[in-house]
Amino acid sequence: MSNSKIQIVVACGSGVATSTIAADAVKELLTELGIQNYNLVKTSMTELPNMVDSTDVILTTNNYKTDEKPCLNIMGFVTGINEEKLKSQLAEIFLNLK
């Protein structure tokens, strides 16, 4: 892991609006954590299953669950509810992968 980029996928229903907002918040958090070695892609929930294999972290604004990879609902970045808790959960995932 240490030499390769962290592959992050952010998915929402259409891959258009909420994933854009959420992805931006994720990037801000990565900057705060001093993590620069990552590759973040946005996608739709329909495309997401095809990307699970090639990704390290799955973040969605929907109700997606998998045991294969670390996965987190990041709706809080869109609604602002429990955003701080979400940030610390996500930070833990990223720091474990680094």
């Binding site: 929402c12 229903g13 259409s14 258009v16 609006a17 909420t18 929930m45 929907n62 709706m75 869109v78 609604t79 602002g80 509810i81």
Partner: peptide
């Protein structure tokens, strides 16, 4: 279709808003 497959209702602090979008 999008709303049916992936709804857009947001539960906020004490109220709810929907942000239908898609079909870009």
């Amino acid at each position: 279709i999008r709303e049916k497959e992936f709804p857009t209702g947001l539960q906020l602090d004490g109220y709810a808003v929907a942000i239908p979008h898609g079909g870009s």
